[in-house]
Write a protein that binds this DNA or RNA. Sequence first.
DNA 1: CGGAGTCTTGAAATATGTCAACTCCCGTGG
DNA 2: CCACGGGAGTTGACATATTTCAAGACTCCG
Lengths: 244, 244
Amino acid sequence: MTVDLLSRQNCSDCPIRHRAVCARCSPEELDQLERLKTYKSFKAGDPILWRGDTLTYVASLVEGVATLGKTMEDGRTQMVGLLLPSDFIGRPGRSEIDFDVVAVTDLTLCCFQRKPFEALIGSTPHIAQRLVEMALDELDVAREWMLLLGRKTAREKIATFINMLVQRQHLSGAENDKRALVLPLTQEQIANYLGLTLETVSRQLSAMKKEGIVQFSDRRHFEVVDFPALHMATGDDSDGGMLV
Amino acid sequence: MTVDLLSRQNCSDCPIRHRAVCARCSPEELDQLERLKTYKSFKAGDPILWRGDTLTYVASLVEGVATLGKTMEDGRTQMVGLLLPSDFIGRPGRSEIDFDVVAVTDLTLCCFQRKPFEALIGSTPHIAQRLVEMALDELDVAREWMLLLGRKTAREKIATFINMLVQRQHLSGAENDKRALVLPLTQEQIANYLGLTLETVSRQLSAMKKEGIVQFSDRRHFEVVDFPALHMATGDDSDGGMLV
DNA sequence: CGGAGTCTTGAAATATGTCAACTCCCGTGG
DNA sequence: CCACGGGAGTTGACATATTTCAAGACTCCG
């Protein structure tokens, strides 16, 4: 982990300004946060927090990708969350963390010491509200994932995963071609996210390439060629989500 | 659904007084809630809310058991939550619900019209705090369940489920013999909770009876005979949780 | 007493996991 | 610059846990 003193930037230029925990802050509130914040960088593969760690700071993910994961004693692991830019680490009123947080790409955090941050929450309803809202969104996502893990087939899981990537990357206002998408995880990581083995992930992805649903330019970059087929494959909607 | 005007009871006598959303309320705050509340009863099998419904009221579960479930278009269903007494229905700032809520036993709700309740939250930090705390607990539970659904074997799932029942029933201060436990769900419902088929649930339960881990007096009542073996079977802990 | 819902048990089918070998990259260090 | 090495991905053959299909037994309630 590196404390990156140089790139200290102004909140108003921040790429996640309008989506992160500070989304609804007024300029004055932003000033207060600005005084508290520190940037930290991690390299791909670095552990950020271990299960059971005491949270000395909380943070917004500014850039990069991280995962939340749980591991059983015999090594089986299940990811329980995927953090993309603007996502938050740390919970109101919680000092401990119940899963591992790992950087999967190089990444930058916008960190706040937990104690002063919590003090600030008391006086800044905009932050408190946003924090609750974000936690509830996570709960919805977790429950949707429970349906996926418990009931979907391998193919449906992969399709749902890709669909989720599409939606989250569009949402975050990817400026470039709508179709150019990043696959931030290795197939092993995808497997851990979907409750599969890496071989099954490979086979299903190969099948979807062969069927012309998705197309890869290289290992980490792809586009969706056939959206109706993709949506159909998620199992979410029998008619493939077509409105017409 | 029946509005049960007769059993309107005093909050101070309420069986879930110290665990529900009102747990930390002062006597004055309780008065305000008392004026707002209405009891409603549902019969086993009654739907309480459908996915997509607008929440016109929020509620605490006083008595009985309910499930939160999601169903796919082809009928596959996955439970995403189990509501026991003191659990809450409805979320701060959310007007819609994204899963079905169904009574699995006869049950009683302590209901509040959503709008006045939300107004009350603004002026009653004790309720707001408790609500957030309960939502975060649900998030933790959901993530623990993701590990179960994605990575555990059928036997581990069953053992974990029973273990969860034990803990939640003890927690709620079951006055009677610590070992007398209620199984509030049919095997089909358990299957939907664990991402299994009802046949698999039956087979695994039979096996655990045969092994002398649990013992049933009738369909709905059992006790755990061999706690170490049960805990061992959950897969959570290689040493069976023995402290010695 | 009947009947429906619940549970049990067996046999067969299958999706996914396991094991293993091989290829393809890509970055590193000589 | 090339060779090397290791991580990542692919693919096949085989194993197996769980599902599926099916039949029957139990039990509770009207």
